[in-house]
Design a protein around this nucleic acid. Structure first.
Length: 501
RNA sequence: GCCCCCAUCGUCUAGAGGACCAGGACGUCGCCCUUUCAAGGCGAAAACAGGGGUUCGAAUCCCCUUGGGGGCACCA
């Protein structure tokens, strides 16, 4: 008795096609299904819809599985874990689809269509859309002739020719379609594989799915599916169409072809693995996605999945399409980065640094983490912000080494005297550094910011960095002195160059 | 072209007939803090697409217009 569910158990599924990496829109669909299952103590099924042999991309299944796990969206039935209604990969269920397609044929609810792809192509061009149902009305002789000739065929569904089909969408209410506008869709392709429509309906029924939650681009196929259930004499699961996610500019569905940057300059990503590689946190992605089309209430934007589950109601989903507000995700990611403990953050920062060719040691990482924590919004930004900690030397630009409203000579002097001060410090830490260097600035009649700016560029190689004195402490006295000396040389060369000209 | 869906600040949204001269968040702008950049604090500008109804009363219900989006494959 593997099946612990009873007739009232909520059963939902996420049914991606292994045609490539997981799309962020697909992730949203998976998340909402998962949330709904958890909310109702139900079953979340992962089913792989690989009925298109041409679009299959090896490795996608692994990517899907890995992505869902990374986000924490574990499934109760499906690949890897099995379940009572398996297999959960459609290419392993082909016999089932053929059986039910034949059942429809035998019960006069479907027919064989011998029309060539060329003919269908012409039809589409001439009339704009739609199959003219020629084979639905073939005479017995014509049909026999095709059979005897062994002509290839597809199986098409006999849609009702009149009346209306009403879909009761859980989010939008009733949607009415006029049957005379609907198509005789193909159920079984000439290669013997089912189309999405057949496989989806057969599997949802056989897997006892109670609620379908899918993206709203599927609305037009709902009446077809409804009629299929009816023809089979099966009860149709309840259905809800989730709002589409639009490009940040509002032009069209969020797609892989999007090449956009958010106003904060972050690249708009579309595939889940891209987010992971760019240093987004799974908690941030989940939180962000939950906020598209659904809201927590109580004026709260930041919340965990655990907090979401008990309040996740379908009725509260907003049917309107929503743009993908990327900057808000970036902001949320920053929030979650700041929530990490120094230890957790240090570990998370290792990968981006290593990918940049650096060798971060654990001890330094632990000291650096708190310094960058409130300065980065994605993990990868640590490389630009704090890469200098893990490099032997830095390469400051000469012009950056010249302090604000200072001459080259003054800047050289500042570097030299700062080095002297640092050498003579009894103790080398942030506090003693700050005291001594503030005194130096006063002594030189410089504003603190002027002196610190020069030192910052000399030590870090950049104009923007974590706080100077903490930074110096971590870099260490010897390396700080080396870098000050090098900066001095660089500016010295500038003076010579200027003299030559 | 045909079918369908949708419509509150620039964006994500709260709002399910009176509690709304519409609340929160991102972003933007200003101020504070400050060694840079952030983070943080405070504050500001910013919306019910338009027009008709229904009702004592409409952001909330109905209709039309407009606008946006989705779909019209032997792809899912």
């Amino acid at each position: 008795m593997a099946d612990t569910s009873n007739n009232n158990t909520v059963r939902v599924r996420f049914a991606p096609s292994p045609t490539g990496p997981l799309h962020i829109g697909g992730v949203r669909t998976a998340l909402f299904n998962w949330l709904f299952a958890r909310r109702h103590n139900g079953i979340f099924i992962l089913r792989i819809e690989d009925t298109d042999r041409n679009r299959y991309v090896p490795g996608s299944l692994e990517q899907i599985i890995e992505g869902l796990k990374w986000l924490g969206l574990y499934w109760d039935e499906g690949p890897e874990v099995g379940g009572p209604y398996g297999p959960y990969i459609q290419s392993q269920r082909l016999d089932l689809y053929r059986k039910w397609a034949n059942w429809l044929l035998e019960h006069d609810k479907a027919y064989k269509c011998y029309c060539s792809k060329e003919r269908l192509e012409e039809l589409r061009k001439a009339r704009g859309s739609g199959y003219d149902r020629r084979c639905r009305y073939l005479t017995e002789e014509e049909r026999r002739a095709h059979e005897e000739a062994g002509d290839p065929f597809v199986i098409r569904f006999k849609m009702p020719l009149e009346g209306e089909t009403v879909i009761n969408d859980l989010i939008r209410g009733p949607i009415t379609f006029h049957n005379e506008r609907l198509q005789d869709l193909i159920l079984l392709k000439s290669d013997g594989y089912p189309t999405y429509h057949l496989a989806n309906v057969v599997d949802d029924h056989l897997m006892r799915v109670t609620h379908i939650m899918r993206a709203s681009e599927w609305i037009p196929t709902a009446p077809l599916h409804y009629q299929l259930y009816k023809a089979f004499g099966w009860e149709m699961p309840k259905i809800a169409h989730l709002p589409v996610i639009l490009n940040p500019n509002g032009k069209g569905k969020l797609s892989k072809r999007t090449q956009a940057f958010s106003s904060s300059g972050h690249k708009v990503l579309v595939l889940l693995h891209e987010y992971r590689e760019a240093g987004y946190l799974p908690e941030a992605i989940v939180n962000f996605l939950t906020n598209i089309g659904w809201s927590f209430g109580e004026d709260r934007e930041i919340f965990s999945v655990e907090e979401t589950i008990p309040r996740f109601e379908l009725e509260r989903i907003n049917p309107a399409g929503a743009r993908f507000s990327f900057d808000k995700l970036v902001w949320l990611n920053g929030i979650y980065i700041r929530k990490k403990s120094p230890e957790e953050l240090a570990e998370l920062l290792r990968e981006p640094l290593e990918k940049a060719g650096l060798r971060p040691d654990k001890e330094t990482l632990l000291k650096v983490a708190p310094l960058v924590q409130e300065r980065i919004k994605t993990l990868n930004e640590v490389v630009d912000m704090a890469g200098f900690f893990f490099r032997e030397t830095v390469e400051p630009a000469p012009k950056d080494l010249i302090g604000k409203k200072m001459t080259v000579e003054q800047s050289i002097e500042a570097l030299r005297r700062a080095a002297d001060v640092i050498k003579s410090l009894p103790e080398f830490n942030a506090q003693t550094l700050e005291e001594a260097l503030r005194a130096l600035a006063a002594d030189m009649s410089l504003k603190a910011g002027q002196l610190f700016g020069v030192l910052r560029v000399a030590v870090t190689g950049q104009k923007v960095s974590p706080p100077l004195f903490e930074t110096m402490e971590i870099v260490g006295r010897d390396r700080v002195l080396e870098r000050l000396e090098k900066a001095e040389k660089i500016l010295g060369q500038e003076v010579e160059k200027g003299a030559d000209e």
